[in-house]
C-alpha cells in the first residue's frame, strides 16, 4: 500500500466522535481488501475479521480509533454559529481555522472572533476562549437557519500534506495514523500464515471516553488485544522524559495497563527483526482504548503500541510515515507467530 495515500484519505475524511460515518466508509473500503468478514456495530465501530488457520479459534483484537476531535453547533446567533467542543480541544488552536459545518449539506466555514485592534488590554493577554469564538459560513441568518441545526457536527478542514523526507502533517492523525498501521498490518498478513483469528477494529468515540472500545471488546471477547494509538513526539519545549522520538519506530508501552508477557513478546520480535522500537512508560491510566479493553468481561491481556506524533490535538499533527509502516510490520509478525498465550 502507499502509506501516504491511505493516511491522506483517512485523515481528510470527516469523523468527529459520535458521527464517524465519513471516515468509517474509507476504513471499510481499506479493510475489505484483506478481511473475511466486515461489520459495523451499534456504536459505529468498524470490525473486520481475518480468519486464522486454527486449529483453535483464539482471537486477537487490534484497536485503533477512527474518531477525531471536533466541534458541535450549540446555538445560531444572528447568522453566526456558536459551538461547543467534542473531545479535548485546545482553545489556542481554534481562531482562524477552516472548518466544515455538517448541516443539511457540508458548508465550508471559518472560526473567527473580534479583530485584535478592538480587543481590550486584558483580552489581549489571554487566549480567546471558545465561547467568544464563532463560525462564519458566509450566509445570511435565514439561510444558516435553514441549513444548520443545533447539534450538527463541525470538523476541521485541514489537508494532509507531505513534508520533507518521510514526514507528513494533517488533522486526525490521532488516531488514523494507527488505522493506517492496521491496514498495513492486514496487507502483510494477507501474505503470511496466522493461526489466530484477527479482529481489526477501527473504534468510535475514543475521544468521548473510550466508548467504542468498551462495546466492541465486549462483543469480540478477545483472548488478547493490542491497541494502537499515538504518543507525544519530540519537539521544542518538551523534555525527553515526556516524549518519544519521531522516526524511531513505535513505542511499546510499559505499565499496569499492559500485560508483561505480551509486551516482552513484542519487544523480542522487534529486536529479532530489527524493527526500530522505543519504550514508553505509562504509570497509570493510558487514556487509550487499551484501558477499556483490559477490563472487558473477565479481563484481557492487553498491549499498546504508540506511533510518535508531534502537535497532538491540532490540525497540524506531524509524524513519520516509516513509523506507521514499522508498526504494521511488527503487528503482522507478532500475529503470524502467535500460538499459545501466555508463552510457556
Amino acid at each position: 500500500m502507499n502509506t501516504f495515500e491511505v493516511l491522506k484519505k483517512l485523515s481528510e475524511a470527516p469523523g468527529v466522535a459520535g458521527n464517524e460515518s465519513g471516515v468509517s466508509q474509507i476504513v471499510a473500503e481499506e479493510f475489505k481488501k484483506y478481511v473475511d468478514e466486515l461489520r459495523t456495530d451499534a456504536l459505529g465501530n468498524v470490525i473486520g475479521l481475518k480468519k486464522g488457520t486454527g486449529p483453535s479459534s483464539r482471537r486477537i483484537m487490534l484497536a485503533a480509533h477512527m474518531d477525531e476531535i471536533g466541534l458541535m453547533v450549540s446555538e445560531i446567533e444572528k447568522g453566526f454559529i456558536r459551538f461547543t467542543t467534542v473531545g479535548g480541544i485546545d482553545d489556542r488552536i481554534l481562531l482562524g481555522q477552516e472548518v466544515i459545518v455538517h448541516g443539511l449539506k457540508p458548508l465550508p466555514g471559518i472560526i473567527a472572533s473580534k479583530p485584535p485592534h478592538l480587543l481590550s488590554p486584558e483580552e489581549r493577554k489571554k487566549v480567546t476562549p471558545k465561547d467568544q469564538l464563532f463560525v462564519d459560513v458566509g450566509l445570511p441568518e435565514e439561510e444558516v437557519k435553514a441549513l444548520v441545526r443545533v447539534g450538527d457536527f463541525i470538523s476541521f478542514a485541514a489537508k494532509c500534506v507531505r513534508l520533507q523526507g518521510d514526514m507528513a502533517s494533517g488533522k486526525a492523525f490521532d488516531d488514523r495514523a494507527s488505522v493506517a498501521a492496521l491496514v498495513c498490518c492486514l496487507e502483510h498478513l494477507s501474505q503470511m500464515k496466522h493461526r489466530w483469528d484477527v479482529y481489526a477494529v477501527a473504534t468510535s468515540q475514543e475521544e468521548m471516553g473510550l466508548r467504542g472500545a468498551v462495546v466492541s471488546a465486549y462483543g469480540i471477547a478477545p483472548d488478547l488485544a493490542i491497541a494502537i494509538d499515538v504518543g507525544f513526539g519530540d519537539s521544542l519545549g518538551l523534555s525527553d522524559a515526556e516524549t518519544i522520538k519521531v522516526g524511531k519506530g513505535p513505542a511499546i508501552a510499559i505499565g499496569p495497563n499492559f500485560h508483561p508477557a505480551l509486551r516482552e513478546t513484542l519487544v523480542k520480535i522487534a529486536q529479532e527483526l530489527e524493527i526500530p522500537y522505543q519504550t514508553e512508560a505509562i504509570p497509570g491510566p493510558s487514556g487509550t482504548d487499551a484501558w477499556a479493553i483490559q477490563v472487558s468481561r473477565e479481563g484481557v491481556p492487553t498491549a499498546l503500541l504508540s506511533i510518535p506524533l508531534r502537535y497532538m490535538h491540532t490540525p497540524v499533527e506531524t509524524l513519520s510515515l516509516k513509523d506507521i509502516e514499522r508498526t504494521g510490520l511488527l503487528l503482522a509478525h507478532f500475529i503470524s507467530r502467535l500460538e499459545k498465550f501466555p508463552p510457556e
Binding site: N45, M72, V73, V150, R211, V214, V215, S216, G219
Partner: peptide
C-alpha cells in the same frame, strides 16, 4: 421539541449505550 447540546452532566443513557455490545 428542542435540540439539546449540554456541556455538563449526563444521564442513564450514557450507561445504557455501553451495555454489552452497545445499544442504540
Amino acid at each position: 421539541y428542542q435540540l439539546e447540546v449540554l456541556e455538563g452532566g449526563t444521564t442513564d443513557a450514557a450507561a445504557i449505550q455501553l451495555t454489552r455490545e452497545g445499544i442504540p
